[in-house]
Structures are given as C-alpha cells and as structure tokens.
Design a protein around this nucleic acid. Structure first.
Lengths: 233, 233
DNA sequence: GGGCTTATTGTTGTTTTTACACCAAAGCCG
DNA sequence: CGGCTTTGGTGTAAAAACAACAATAAGCCC
C-alpha cells in the first residue's frame, strides 16, 4: 500500500460527466469500476492527467477513449480537491462535462472493457468517490448553461423537431412534461431568435402528422453574438 | 535547476483574485514578485496547496495572510493547467476570486513584505505567468455573478447609499457612469426586491443633501430564495 | 439667504411575457 | 374508404416588465 500511496502522493485527474439525450430523457454515461477502490461501483469516466498533457486534452482523451468522439462540446466546471476525497492519496480532480449526440455513440473497446452504460439522471445511485457531488454540480451547470447559451443542440441530432427541442429543455431543467413550458410560447421564443433554419425535409415514419425539421445555424448565431445579442431561454 | 524542477514536477497551487471597491472604482489586489521567475512583476497572490489542505482552505489562507480577513466571499472559478504555464515545471493552479470590503483591509506583515497594492482594473499591466488571463476570466465571472446573485454587497460597507450601489454596478459592469443605468429605474428595481432595509441613519459629512443608508438583509433574501425567487439585475 | 451639489420620487408609452384552444395532417384500424 | 387517434402547428388579449424622462428637496458653503 505504501507504494501506491507514494505514487498517489500528489496527482491530478480529470473526470468527465458525459451527457446524452435519448427517449426524451437526459442521460449520463457511467462506467463500472473493475478495480479497487470502489470495485463494482458506478463512477464517472476519468483518468490521471499525463505530465505533458493539458487539462482540456486529458478530458478530450477520456471522452474519445470511451466514445470514439472528437470535437464535441466540452466545458470545465470545477475542481474537487478535498484532502480525503480519494482513499489512496491526494488526488485533485478537474471536472468537465460534455454533451454528445447519443446517436453518434458506439461502444469502443475501452467502453466495453469498462462496462460503460447510459443512466437516466434520476436513476443514478451511489457512485464511487465524490462522484455524486461532481455529477450534481455539473448538472446544475448544464441547467444554467442550457438557458443562456445554445448548447442544447449539442445533445440533439443535426436535424430535430421543435417538440424534441422542447422535451430536451424540459428534461434538462427537470420540468414536468408539457407542463413546464408552453408549447406556443416556446416555439415563438426560439423561432424569434432566428438561429434555427427550417429544413426542406419532414419527420418520417411517425404515426401522426409529421413535424418540420430544423437545424441550428451557428454562423448566424455567432453573428448575433458579435452584434451584442445574447441567447436566453 | 534540476532540484527545482523535481520539486515542481507536479504541484498545485491556488491563485486569488481579490476584488475591492473604492473611490467608485473596482480594484484588484496584486503583489509584486520578489523572486524569480518574473521577479519584479505584478502577480496575483497565490501559494502552493499544502498536502493536507483543502483547496478552499488554501485560498482562504492566501487571503488571510495578505489581508488579515476571514469569512469573506470566496468562489472557485476555474483551473488553469496548460503544460507550460509555469516556467519551472508543471503547476496547475485553481483560481478563486474573493470580494472584500476595502475599508476592512489593512496591511499585514505579509502584504507589506510582498508589496501588495490595489490596482484599478483598467490600469493593470502585464502580469506574471498567465495571470492576465486568470484575472480576465475572474472578472467576467464576477460580472455575471453580480447580476444574478447578491454579491455586490460584499464589496460595500455594511451601510451604503443607493448611489454607491449603483456606482458599484456601473464600475463592475464597466458601464459609463450615470449613463449605463437609469437612476430611477435602478432604485425602483433594487428596492422592489425587498432585500434592502433602510437604516435610521443618514449619510454624514457630505456637502450636499445626505442620502439614506441601506443594509442588505440576508435573512430575507434567503427566505425569498427558498420560495423560488431569484435575484436578477 | 443664495448658490451649489446630490437625493429623491412618478408617469407614460413600449416591449415582453403569459395564458389559453382549435384545426391540420398523417398513420392505423376496422 | 372513413373515422379514430395522435401529434403538429398556429394567434390574440391581458398583464407585467421595462425604458425613457425632469422637477423638487435637503443639506453645505459662502
């Protein structure tokens, strides 16, 4: 144990809260620990930061190893450094959250090896380390962020319906379905921002009137930002 | 140098952006470095985190050593960990900002030894390390925070006038004086929140009509928060 | 008392937000 | 094919919030 202790005398890691959206529900990707400590417990994916690696790079690496995805939305949230947060020594961890289009997700060998699985937020049980706290803080951050930056789109497919977008907001903000946000007002508001463009295509394969598909227009958004506009829902 | 290098092989520090408000201006407390690297340059006060010390505790310690103050507003902002941000090795630093009532500030031996001095934000020159970036990010955070949480009061004396409060907002948000915020509307808004109580006393020693003094009522604010209210200016 | 300086207060027009209900379009099923 | 079911799509009116704006009050100083 003393060898382990000395290895861990002073280390830093990153932990990544990977959010996805599927079936109208916000999800988080967890792994099941295969080694002590907390063997068998669910945990946030994370790793020690390499000596020559920037923090953001480490977070991207953790994400890519697990999902195969690069260039997705990633944001540093907070650093957790309580003296005893890691049972084997002093490890401070920098928490990130990332937003992925869950449809792009496929099991990588690493995710298979680590028994990665999506968990609905409300069904997350007791996690390893202080990961419940980290998840909580990251969720709060997402809830704030989704309201004043156009990051919600990162969780949806390229083309989406307004109903899907509304469900996303209701799910992330934990509002009662079709009760928290008024459908007409939501659509008015989001469309009045002029950052969505209507696609030519329609929704297909649904047993009811098909919805129009929309896309987020980042260029136009960037231009509005440059003109002083700020996204706000 | 290799000894220094090995000492610094993997270390973490805290840096503290200490904000104050005086003479209608937002200020930041900087120290002048007495040792290499960046000897003679102005820098944010900071220190390595002790092995048995929580991050917040380290930030509080840095603050107390410099100002003698305890229990002031302190918030973690972000961690900076670029591989080459420190010329002597890998040091990742957790940035905090704190808000102090500048009138409470007195030079401690440590602050004297480190030539601590208040700098008006706009007059801050080139700082050591990546401290300009850190200051910038912390200022942005303060600008956001001051608008949706009652933290502005932390920078003012216990009792203050509404004009002082307005000047604080204009200064923090970098708005043109008496141009950015309409006096009547500002007063209406802040008073309608019902978190300020009028003191019996009035301003004294001014060569004009004395203003009423107000105090922030934290209890009432906490109660409103519990009822779902959210501060917003 | 007159002049100087900052404090204090209300109204109106405009914009934004909220609340609310019905018809449309597709698949399904008989 | 016709009706049923399901979700998509839309407008208006009342209320609230916001923005613009200026005249009087209270103290010091001389």
């Amino acid at each position: 144990m003393s060898e382990v202790e000395s290895f861990f005398k002073s280390a830093f890691s990153v932990d990544n809260v990977i959010f996805g959206f599927d079936g109208g529900e916000l999800k988080v990707l967890l792994i099941q620990r295969g080694a002590a400590p907390f063997r068998g417990k669910w945990a946030l994916p994370g790793d020690l930061v390499y000596p020559n690696e920037d923090l953001d790079t480490a977070a991207e690496r953790v994400l890519e190893q697990l999902t195969g995805l690069r260039g997705v939305y990633l944001e540093q949230v907070r650093t957790f450094g309580a003296v005893n947060r890691h049972p084997l020594g002093r490890v401070i961890t920098v928490a990130y959250f990332s937003l992925i289009k869950i449809s792009d997700f496929t099991l990588t060998p690493a995710s298979f090896a680590q028994s990665a699985r999506w968990h609905t937020i409300s069904e997350v049980g007791e996690l390893a380390f202080d990961h419940n706290e980290i998840l909580d803080i990251c969720l709060q951050r997402l809830q704030r962020k989704v309201r004043n930056a156009p990051v919600g789109f990162e969780l949806l497919p390229e083309k989406f319906t307004l109903t899907e977008l509304q469900q996303l907001y209701e799910s992330v903000l934990n509002l009662p379905k079709n009760k928290g946000l008024d459908k007409r007002n939501f659509r008015k508001k989001i469309l009045s921002m002029n950052v969505l463009v209507e696609c030519a295509e329609m929704q297909e394969g649904v047993a009811h009137r098909p919805a129009k598909l929309y896309q987020f227009d980042r260029e136009r958004y960037d231009q509005f930002v440059a003109e002083g506009y700020s996204f706000d829902i």
